[in-house]
Amino acid sequence: MPLLWIGLGGALGAMSRYLVATAIFKWMDKPFPYGTLSVNLIGSFAIGIAYIWLVEHQWGGDHHKQLAMVGFLGAFTTFSTFSLESISMLQQERWLAAFSYMGISLAGCLFATLAGMWLSKSIS
């Protein structure tokens, strides 16, 4: 049964990732991976919230964690794509774009996770 919850969450997360990243990419219309950066920041914020509610507050059961954290957010965030895009920019010698993207992704996602945890704790 856990695989069913993870699979359902993963399918929803992957579709959401595609829709959000594509919409942002089209909206920004720039040669910078804003879509991937956005889903990583959103996903990091969301996993901070999910962790507080599902793990620390023990809301729901294991199937909620499997669906939301492992399935949905596991498929929604895209650090594998982040890695490929970073290497691609480095190979193209787009140094400023590559290092900006890597720095913003790392610091921004860590901050977004912390912000999600803080927000959840402050309203619980």
Rank of each mutant, 00 (worst) to 15 (best):
A46P: 04
S38C: 12
W59G: 01
F79E: 07
S83Q: 13
Q92L: 00
F45K: 09
S44N: 13
A11I: 12
Q66C: 05
E85P: 00
F25D: 15
L106R: 13
S122K: 13
W59I: 13
V55D: 02
A97I: 07
M69A: 04
A14D: 01
F32E: 00
V39A: 10
A50N: 12
M89C: 07
I123L: 14
L73E: 02
S120Q: 01
I49M: 12
S83T: 14
L54A: 07
M117A: 06
W27G: 08
A97L: 02
A46Q: 00
W95S: 10
G43D: 04
E93V: 15
T36C: 09
E85L: 01
D29G: 01
S105R: 01
G48F: 06
T81S: 10
S105I: 03
I49S: 09
F111W: 11
S86I: 02
A14H: 03
K121A: 15
H64E: 06
L84H: 10
I42G: 09
I47C: 12
R17F: 11
P31W: 06
I123G: 09
S105E: 08
L96H: 09
G35F: 04
V55K: 07
G74I: 03
T77W: 03
A98V: 04
S38N: 07
A14L: 08
L3T: 15
A50S: 14
L96R: 11
M28K: 14
F72A: 03
S122E: 12
M15I: 10
H64M: 12
